[in-house]
Design a binder for these strands. Sequence first.
DNA 1: CTGTAGTTTTCACTTATTGAAACGTCCTTT
DNA 2: AAAGGACGTTTCAATAAGTGAAAACTACAG
Lengths: 226, 226
Amino acid sequence: MAESSTRTVERALVLLGAVCDAGSLSLADAAREAELSASTALRLLRTLEGTGFVRRDPLGAYRPGLRVVQLGAQALGHESLVSLAEPALERLVRQTGESAYLSVPSHDGEGVYLAMREGTHSVRHASWIGRSIPLDGTAVGAVLAGGPPAGGFVVVRDGIEADVTAIAAPVSPGGRAVAALSVVVPSYRITAVEARRFGALVAQEAAALLTPPDAHDTATTRGEPA
Amino acid sequence: MAESSTRTVERALVLLGAVCDAGSLSLADAAREAELSASTALRLLRTLEGTGFVRRDPLGAYRPGLRVVQLGAQALGHESLVSLAEPALERLVRQTGESAYLSVPSHDGEGVYLAMREGTHSVRHASWIGRSIPLDGTAVGAVLAGGPPAGGFVVVRDGIEADVTAIAAPVSPGGRAVAALSVVVPSYRITAVEARRFGALVAQEAAALLTPPDAHDTATTRGEPA
DNA sequence: CTGTAGTTTTCACTTATTGAAACGTCCTTT
DNA sequence: AAAGGACGTTTCAATAAGTGAAAACTACAG
């Protein structure tokens, strides 16, 4: 039912998230962000600092530490989806000229961009890996949260971001969407017809993503040899 | 003096680190790794799970969660060093044909690879972003831990890894090494003369890395507008 | 010089974390 | 088939450990 969580740890993690989200945060700001008293926030941040998860810059502000970078990079490496998706993103960029993304549902009812490939146009959509995206009113959200879309893909013109059209398709092995491929285009550049063409491409890549039925990373599972 | 740390949080972070290092860990293994009782480990891992820092795979094993990937990717993006170093790594690969790395000292007396560029040779060194490297007996370690090397760079032939020669130079604005650039080559492929040539290249790039005297990322500092 | 905001330390309160023990389950061994 | 072992999970009493108000101290701004 409710969550059996350790409050201290939860708070520390919120703090860590706040620091990472902001990129740089003063103690007071961090405390406010996490709704903690200054003394508690200080203590927790010190712990995070001691373990390398945050560091203080010369002005005393808290910043993400190297441990975060290290663990994140490791995790990204292990994330088989990302490596699997790279070729697909590559192809989408080649075929559409636009930036292509891989995103997955996050734990808190949002989505996260896991990988991207920049488009070739000089005016392109500027987003980035690790960014959270709301599931409401976005193409990615529609395919991640909702059931399988009608034509296999979703087009959202001028959703949360004006002047931008997003085209997304679900990666759903066995029905449930575990990820989304998407292409994001400045709206002025795309017609309804072309959007459908792109949609078909995205849907095709998304469908093909997990079809090669091999066990890709069973090697590193469960402890080491003796 | 000693560290004023919250034990609970420290333990949880150790657990998180263990899971990320292993890529996949059973509860019992994680508990052993962190030297915790099973019940404590379970409770803490549940907290980490609830916040998205770890997730359980279908077999019940713990794996790094999306939050880790997200925060790590964000941090990597903010890490100005990485973006600054990209062109330098690129150039090193072009000039040497070998894999080039950016690494920084970690909090625990080790180093971490932050960025790399793969070499063009078909036989190349396989390492990866986020990997820890000992500071003893490595070229990177020598420049990160020790003072400024004699010729501006360090060559270590067959250090911890046999058959591999590493050439590293420190990025040290104002004396202290904050990072290292390095090139790693299969030993059979490189002569002493060429090693010196590479060394000069690496040293040159390392020295130039932080010279453009501009404040590169003051923009995102300290909260948002109003 | 006075006032406001931030960072840090201290300390008494008590809440929230802890780990041994017990239980059920799923394998492996005999 | 039965015994043994390892794992995941739950419970619960003991107490270790986290908490936040307040005060001290610093740094600015008016």
